[in-house]
Amino acid sequence: MEITTANPTFKLELTSSPHVHSRWSTKQAMWFVVLALIPALISAVIFFGPYQLLIILTSVLFCAATEFAVKKIRKRKITVDDGSAIITGLLLGLILPPNFSLSSTAIGAVFAIAIGKEIFGGLGYNIFNPALIGRAFLQAAFPVAITTWTQPSYAVDTVTSATPLAAFKFDKVVTSIEPMFLGNVGGSLGETSALAILIGGIFLIIIGVVNYRIPLAMILGMILFAGIFWIIDPVKYPNPLFQLFAGGFLFGTFFMATDWVTSPITSKGMWVFGFGIALLVFLIRVFGGLPEGVMYAILIMNSIVPIINRYTRPRIFGEAK
């Protein structure tokens, strides 16, 4: 085709610069997260049996359906295909205890999306991590069911079905690191296998969905806080590695705290946020009444993200230091 006149015959786009793009899209980033959760999903099935898939499926379905229904009622564009509700469903399912009731799971999922996300205006506007909101609701509504831990199906050595954290908190039993690394211990579905979580988490960092700062700050923070106390009194306080691998810490580190929407946007802010969560988790676990504190720690830090953003705004290039 030739252009010989001022009016070309092809369809022209006239949007202003830049004319090229990184090709990242919301959808794609979300689906990468789904992909990164597959190892944790597999570990849940391996250690707790195929029934757990039903819990996760229920959670995903009810999350997606709730989002669909809310958008429909409010006459907004249906955005279920952006994958974010599916992520919330997966995340919620993976932080529930094995053999949790399906109807309760469904209630939690509806709550997570309706109250945790859509009430704020949907993806991008929510303040709290929706999956954690769902889980916090279930904790309040079914306090017993949600802390009933079935032992892993392959459990050979585990004599108690208590989680490593509860075992330590109430009985001063330190679970050895190896089963905690593989996932062969009591705990929430996707939270027990450090290996599976690390595979997914490191994948997300390499691909660029997750920035390394928050996970690194959380891990370094936990090693620091737990380390100091452990050096002071190694009997009373568990070692830092135990703290890292126990409970929901790693899962929270890579999949909850790093949620784009509910974490800071500045680089300094990300460090502050990560250290803050680590400190809170440590304080709750060691000095609080609960064995676990990841959920509350993240929710508390979520609530101060706007303040963190405001006070960690970077110095404009060339302005006096």
Partner: peptide, 13 residues
């Protein structure tokens, strides 16, 4: 040229 759909800010930083 870029043709992806615009969504609300995800606060990814």
């Amino acid at each position: 040229v870029n043709d992806h759909e615009e969504t609300p800010c995800l606060r990814c930083g």
